[in-house]
Design a binder for these strands. Structure first.
Length: 601
DNA sequence: ATGTGGCGGGG
DNA sequence: GTGTACGCCACAT
């Protein structure tokens, strides 16, 4: 039996003999430091929870008429209430959508839970694994077949059969090979269309010395590598990916432009796009009306959704984002002018090469700036880096709560049905307090704001679906102003506990930051505390978000009611000291000093 | 007021 | 694939 220790980069599963095989993609530590590894786990089975109508035995009998692997009786908490539930283990993850309605419709079944947790996410949660963190596994190295992207000499990649459970270990910051890319297309009319407009340049930048533009035309720039045809150019691109083996591939809008485009052209020209670590091609995951490009075993990160989430701008072009992050203008060529530059074959063509190179470098630099915070979010939330970079902050909070619920032995609430969603949407809340600004030019302005107002209220008033008192008033409780909601003081509720731990952890990190002199360590700690702050502040308004699993109209109402109460009381207090509020919004206000101090204060 | 439809980034 | 965004704005009714 061997032991392997690696940084967990990504995870998925494949099917072998009708059974799921979880694949952990990583980068080895220890003796084979830097080598890629795919660790295979054949021992994890999909399951859902079933809440019986009343008679557990009858419920088990009914479920056993369906093709299920095993049924276990378990004790789980449902909003702190202990319940006997059934853990129904199925043979394959895809049996879950096939069987769940049949199970739910059985007369002895009251409800089913946790029936929509993707298999790889379930695996991470149940095994307490965190992507971008380190993992130790036991097992045997598997003899591997040579294939595209797979070295038959075993130098680049180790395929490993796991025995027993993977163990998380505290680990450092991984040093990863990062490559960015960008393509240019010759489109004389309208937007580029892959059935007629050829790719004229593929530019690449990296942290391992590679910086080049692949093209079919020559240039005096020595970073330009000239190839015979577009077909050869795309082949060269796949060859570079497979020999350099970058862990991260960055692009800007590459989910919906560069990768789909290069994939379509490759198909048309008969070039296999086998750039996955396991020799697979690019897969496109539909996410609503848009899609995400997956390169198996390598992390493809599209920086566009990251920037949309991270900055508030009017536009999110690479030029605009670059300017915002670095304060410098980046050279730009109008999209519908590119073909003219290309056709000119002179000075303009050289400019286009330079622009193309610059785009890949800019994407690399944006990535360099934005990846650390996303890596920390990944390590807190515990879902894959690929997913985290494409996730809204509310979703991150939900997955964090899902993991915590598992730790606490709580079964999570179901997603709202369409009708429940509409009902929630129809509910109108009073939001934060807003005072219309007093017109005019003001002097001696004071600004005041609460830090993390809503998270603080949730913690201090213990606002949680599980602490909300329905009728019983036997315990000590907090009463919300304006709205008729009461919250038990003890014990600490589920959501307040999670937010509280985030803020405690943040305070701890800020404390260590003050004590350290090492600028590198300070920088890392700073990113960590920022990630914790981001998550705590994302709880803002989440109770009122109609798609949230832990949605609660009462909690949403109470949080904002207390918020309005605090801001109004603070404004009143300020007036007693001679300030006059001229504008207020939710968690802060502006005031001018008038000097009219009330002495009865 | 309320409903519907299109759009973002990319060349 | 234990799947199918989302929030904003323009414009119509």
């Amino acid at each position: 039996m061997e032991t392997k220790r690696f940084i967990l980069l990504d995870i998925d599963y494949v099917t072998e003999n009708n059974r799921p095989v979880v694949r952990l993609f990583g980068k080895e530590r220890g003796d084979n430091k830097g080598r890629s590894i795919i660790a295979l786990d054949r021992h994890f089975r999909p399951y859902i929870y079933v809440i019986p109508m009343g008679n557990t035995e009858d419920c088990i009998k009914q479920i056993n008429t369906l093709d299920v692997d095993e049924i276990r009786i378990v004790q789980k908490k449902d909003i702190t209430q202990e319940k006997e539930m059934l853990e129904v283990i199925l043979f394959h993850p895809q049996d879950v959508p096939k069987l769940r309605d049949k199970i739910w419709n059985l007369s002895e079944v009251k409800e089913i839970r946790e029936h929509d947790i993707p298999f790889y996410r379930r695996y991470l949660i149940d095994n307490a694994l965190f992507p971008m963190g380190e993992v130790v596994v036991n097992g045997k190295t598997k003899t591997q077949k040579a294939g595209p992207g797979i070295s038959s000499t075993d130098e680049n990649l180790c395929i490993f059969n796991m025995e027993g459970k993977p163990e998380p270990v505290a680990g450092g910051i991984p040093d990863l090979k990062v490559m960015s890319f960008d393509i240019e297309v010759r489109n004389p009319k309208g937007m580029p269309s892959a059935d007629k407009d050829e790719i004229i340049m593929i530019s690449l930048a990296s942290n391992f010395g590679l910086e080049s533009v692949l093209s079919t035309k020559r240039s005096s720039f020595d970073y330009v590598e000239t190839l015979e045809s577009e077909k050869e150019m795309i082949k060269r691109f796949t060859e570079i990916v497979n020999t350099e083996c970058p862990d991260l591939i960055l692009g800007y809008n590459s989910d919906n432009f560069d990768f789909p485009y290069i994939n379509d052209r490759a198909k048309k020209l008969g070039v296999p796009m086998n750039i996955g670590m396991d020799g697979s091609g690019i897969k496109f995951l539909r996410r609503g009306f848009t899609s995400a490009a997956v390169v198996r075993g390598r992390l493809h990160i599209d920086l566009y959704p990251i920037m949309r989430r991270h900055l508030t701008l009017d536009r999110y072009t690479l030029e605009r984002v670059y300017k915002e992050l670095f304060g410098e203008d980046k050279e730009d060529v109008e999209g519908d002018e590119i073909w003219k530059y290309w056709d000119s074959n002179g000075e303009k063509l050289e400019e286009l090469f330079s622009y193309s190179m610059d785009d890949a470098i800019a994407a690399y630099k944006v990535g360099d700036k934005m990846l650390p915070i996303n890596r920390e979010l990944t390590r807190i939330v515990g879902q894959p880096f690929f997913d985290i970079t494409r996730m809204a902050s509310g979703q991150m909070v939900e997955w964090l709560l899902t993991r915590k619920a598992y730790e606490y032995g709580e079964v999570i609430p179901n997603k709202p049905s369409q009708s429940e969603y509409s009902r929630r949407r129809g509910f109108k809340y009073v939001g934060g307090y807003v005072k219309e600004p007093v017109k005019g030019l003001h002097e001696n302005i004071l600004s005041f704001d609460f830090k993390s107002l809503y998270p603080s209220i949730i913690i201090s008033k213990n606002i949680s679906p599980d602490t909300l008192l329905k009728n019983e008033e036997t315990e000590e409780f907090h009463t919300a102003p304006e709205v008729p909601h009461k919250f038990r003081k003890e014990p600490v509720g589920f959501v307040p506990s999670v937010i509280g731990n985030l803020l405690k952890e943040r305070a701890k990190i800020k404390d260590i930051m003050k004590k350290t002199d090492d600028p590198m360590e300070k920088k890392i700690l700073n990113v960590q505390q920022q990630a914790l702050k981001t998550l705590a502040n994302s709880m803002y308004g989440l109770y009122g978000f109609a798609r949230f699993r832990w949605y609660s109209g009462e909690c949403a109402d109470a949080v904002t009611a207390w918020g309005r109460d605090y801001i109004k009381k603070t404004m009143k207090k300020a007036e007693k000291f001679g300030f006059k509020a001229i504008y207020a919004d939710t968690d802060g206000f502006y005031a001018t000093y008038t000097g009219n101090v009330e002495d009865d204060a």
